[in-house]
Computed example of a mutant assay.
Amino acid sequence: MGRTHDVVERLGLPGLFDVHTHFLPPRVMAKVQAVFDSAGPLIGRPWPIRYRADDDTLVEVLRGLGVRHFSALPYAHKPGMAEFLNDWAAGFAARVPEVLHCGTFFPEPGAAAYVRERLDQGMELVKVHVQVGAFHVTDPLLDEAWGVLAEAGTPVVLHAGSGPVPTEFTGPGPVAELLARHPSLRLVIAHAGAPEYREFLEVAETYDRVGLDTTMAFTDFFDEMGGVYPPELLGRLRDLGLAGKVYLGSDFPNIPYEYDHQVEGLERLGLGEEWLGRVLWHNAAELFGRL
């Protein structure tokens, strides 16, 4: 029994609900992991991947950790790729009952049309990664798709913080501009917005449908990268979590430590067992209706 099981049992939770895990077509995952292995320019430091196996094995690892629901989160980095990923993710969700039906989109003609079609097919969660995709969230080719998602209320896990390596496309400014255009978008800011923790916390406080995921935040590895969460913000983070707007995320399997460490990092914040229970299970279970 690991730390995750101890915490789940103590809090009386059904399990963990992780909104930020990655499952990709095998060849795509191999290329992603090669970038981590080489400490590529968007990684910035050695990053030894802890979990490396085929999808079936990785699913069993999560089940063994007590993760009852999790995501796939494909993300496109070039035109013409999103629908290939969406097809694969739909099939993966159909095969693995714990998996949210995920998808992605890219600034290209027709993005709004295929986003609408995927929503009609039951897509529950979308991933957008502006650092890897090298595009602005305010790109005009995305505007109609954002509108479709805002109207549907479908959550979007958005990696827009400048960690681990800033680019011209990252940071809170473009996200604030996007939300000014589409204030009803339901965004989940990945990695709690690291390293712009304060700015993205303020965005989540300002917009009713914006929240944060905990992915890699509060871990020793992130702290060593200069991503220490400002202690003076913890009271506000507690309030946000109790309001249903902070969600467990891990980045499994491409993490350089045991999965338990993410849960330990949240527990040692000392924000209370009600907060911890909401973050580990209740907030996401309510958001996705998987109670």
Rank of each mutant, 00 (worst) to 15 (best):
G153T: 08
A180G: 09
G211Y: 00
G147A: 12
A152D: 09
D120P: 09
T219L: 02
G235K: 06
A160N: 07
E202G: 10
R116I: 08
E224T: 11
D143G: 08
L242N: 01
V175P: 00
P183Y: 09
E177C: 10
D213F: 00
L142V: 13
G235N: 10
A134I: 08
T206V: 11
L149N: 04
V188Y: 01
G235W: 04
E196V: 11
L234D: 09
E196H: 11
P140Q: 13
L234P: 01
E205N: 11
M216W: 12
R238I: 03
L178R: 01
G171P: 07
H191E: 03
A190N: 04
W146V: 05
L141I: 14
V156D: 01
V137T: 15
E202R: 15
A176M: 10
L237P: 00
L149Q: 04
L125F: 15
P166E: 11
G161F: 01
E224M: 11
R118F: 12
G163K: 10
P174Y: 06
T138P: 06
V115P: 00
H182K: 09
V148Q: 04
H159I: 08
D139Q: 14
V157C: 08
L179M: 09
F135G: 01
Y197S: 03
E151P: 06
F218T: 02
P164L: 06
A217E: 03
T206C: 13
L178K: 01
Y229L: 02
T214Q: 04
E168P: 07
A190L: 09
R209A: 15
M123F: 10
T154E: 05
A160S: 14
R118S: 14
G235T: 04
A134G: 12
A217P: 01
D208A: 15
A134D: 14
V156C: 05
V157P: 00
L125G: 02
L178M: 06
E117F: 07
R209G: 09
G235A: 14
E177R: 14
L178V: 06
